[in-house]
Lab assay of single mutants.
Amino acid sequence: MADQLTEEQIAEFKEAFSLFDKDGDGTITTKELGTVMRSLGQNPTEAELQDMINEVDADGNGTIDFPEFLTMMARKMKDTDSEEEIREAFRVFDKDGNGYISAAELRHVMTNLGEKLTDEEVDEMIREADIDGDGQVNYEEFVQMMTAK
């Protein structure tokens, strides 16, 4: 299944994987998964984290390695993001709930994920998604960005 991913997608997933893999040992533990999910405003229980890991832990060693992570991402993409997942993601970014993602809100979430971005990089990300040019990202623009192939 992971063989249907483009090189660009694999590179993006590698970057995402390293955000989860806090200690850089090449595997994601339940603790690391929990840290990232909490930084995104989720509050999973230990059991939920274990279930999430077990779902993709092909070799049964209790952690997720990069090939397992790729399989999980490929699977998720095949079920292409349901509207509800996209709306949920939008809410994570839209901290003040005004229906727009500002540069400050984007920077806040990315920083929580451990991504240190310059102001230019954040502005560039907003510009790429900002179709109507108002300097922020509304829900429609967010959907376009998330579903762009």
Rank of each mutant, 00 (worst) to 15 (best):
F69C: 02
A148P: 07
K14S: 05
A11F: 07
Q42Y: 07
F90L: 07
T80K: 09
E12Y: 02
F13E: 06
D132R: 03
K78V: 00
M125K: 01
K22P: 00
D21T: 00
I64D: 06
N98V: 03
D51I: 08
E140N: 10
D119R: 10
E7N: 01
E105T: 15
D130F: 01
D134F: 03
G99K: 15
A104T: 09
K149Y: 14
L40P: 07
E128H: 09
T35I: 13
T27K: 05
M146A: 07
Q4W: 00
G99A: 05
F93V: 10
M72K: 06
T71K: 13
T27H: 04
E88K: 11
T27L: 03
E48W: 13
P44R: 07
I101P: 01
T71C: 05
Y100P: 00
L19F: 03
R127E: 01
A129P: 13
N138E: 14
N54H: 08
R91L: 10
E48G: 13
T27I: 11
T63I: 12
A89M: 08
I131P: 01
R91K: 05
A16M: 12
T27P: 09
F66G: 01
G97F: 03
K149A: 10
T71D: 01
A129V: 12
E15Q: 09
M110F: 00
R107P: 02
M72R: 08
E141Q: 03
T6R: 02
T29D: 03
F90D: 10
H108P: 09
S102I: 06
E121C: 00
D119F: 08
V109Q: 05
E115H: 12
K22H: 03
G133Y: 15
I131L: 12
T111E: 14
K78N: 06
V137M: 15
N138K: 11
F66V: 12
K31T: 10
T118D: 13
D96S: 04
M37V: 13
L19C: 05
R38F: 03
L117R: 05
V109N: 01
E85M: 14
I126Y: 12
E120N: 11
S82V: 08
N43R: 15
I10E: 09
A129T: 07
M110V: 10
T30Y: 05
I28F: 13
V56R: 04
L117W: 00
I101F: 14
D81V: 14
E120P: 15
H108L: 12
D59S: 08
A89W: 06
L5E: 07
K116E: 11
K31D: 02
